[in-house]
Design a protein around this nucleic acid. Structure first.
Lengths: 215, 215
DNA sequence: CCTCAAATTATACGCTTGCAGAATTACCGC
DNA sequence: GCGGTAATTCTGCAAGCGTATAATTTGAGG
């Protein structure tokens, strides 16, 4: 580098720069965990100098909070986008929900790394905990409702305890397949993961989800 | 602290001190992730001074490798201890395997924190990768065999592709329940988790695992 | 009781980290 | 074109990091 030469730069809007910094932080955490997301590394990846971070975020932890919120928001947005609302049959809605949970971009090599990297930050920061609870329980609640509606639509009136058990098990199966698929992407052929999910959640609930998908 | 007074200490055997240091490192990672496991923090928790770490481990990464190996070894040991070998009926063996996977000490609040904390270290360090592959695939392979034997024992000759799908799904269900139970310990009543696992894996495979347990 | 190897502590070094504030530069409105 | 504002960079700092090595203390054996 030439000495005494100040680096050229372009001015950007607040949203743009914040977005770049958040994206950079997420990339770094996904690749190397929280320890890789140093202020200097984030700035370098975002194409700016470290000082700029403190111009847009009061502290590094603030940036990480925003990054986590952005991550969770993108996950739920992606999920909703794939679910394709407006399906009349409750069983088909549940099936689509499962497929969406086990299809890219939900299943992604970096997603599980991000999820793991944030766990400890989430457990210690109250703000992150709030974000976590909101989005996590939203997912779980949505699944609860879908299962209840799907069972009701075929005339089954499972007790609340049975519904709770169904929701826990289906959620576990989705989570487990999501983890396997995300961390071992090459272990599954195209479309195998959602097919497994639909078939097996059908088994758990006693519903033919696969058939309901063909509409 | 009095000035110029050197700290008193007791000599311990190599195994004892290494064990203390490893235990301290695991505690810290479980609580606060890899970033919390600094050399100084580990030493303090183990009741020694930082320099001692380098007397027993060539580098900090060596200590973390040993800690990960110890963690995985303890998990598989605990698992095997609960499985209670020597059961004749293959279906009962599978059921016991599932129960063991979803019972303390396998299900533990700190276990999932540790697992998450090590993920990125494992992905970057070849030695850790080796440890991971060895123990992880041992678990998965054991499950594969148990499922095949259980199905064969009731006269079902599922094709290799079906067996593979069964193993993936059962593994996913166990993993998911393990994660839910470990990260939300208060969300489940006593014995509920293994009961859910046994019942639902029975559904996935078309076997009555619960009945096989009562022997 | 003294000796001596080894276990342990203490100190120090170079590097990185997050953070703060001053200095500079780009761009918008006139 | 020409300020003026604020976006951006630059420099510096104190604390913490992992590591290296020298200085001590311990406990066992003679």
């Amino acid at each position: 580098m030439a000495d005494g030469v100040r680096r050229k730069f372009r001015r950007e809007g607040e949203a743009q720069r914040q977005g770049d910094l958040i994206a950079a932080a997420l990339e770094l955490i996904a690749e190397g965990g929280p320890q890789a997301a140093t202020v200097r590394a984030i700035a370098a990846r975002a194409g700016v100098t470290p000082g700029l971070i403190r111009h847009y975020f009061h502290t590094k932890e603030d940036l990480l909070c925003a990054a986590y919120a952005s991550f969770m928001q993108r996950m739920t947005d992606d999920h909703r986008a794939t679910v394709a609302d407006g399906v009349a049959d409750p069983v088909a809605r549940l099936a689509r929900f499962v497929v969406a949970s086990l299809t890219p971009p939900m299943v992604d090599a970096r997603a599980v790394g991000l999820w793991a990297g944030f766990i400890h930050l989430v457990q210690h920061d109250p703000v992150m905990r709030a974000v976590h609870h909101k989005t996590y329980h939203a997912f779980r609640f949505e699944l609860d409702v879908l299962i209840a509606e799907a069972l009701a639509s075929v005339g089954r009136g499972d007790s609340p305890e049975e519904l709770r058990r169904h929701a826990i098990s289906c959620n576990a199966l989705i989570d487990g397949l999501w983890m396997e698929g995300s961390s071992l992407p090459d272990a599954f052929s195209d479309g195998e993961l959602p097919r497994l999910g639909v078939a097996n959640i059908g088994l758990l609930l006693g519903l033919d989800l696969a058939a309901a998908l063909e509409d």
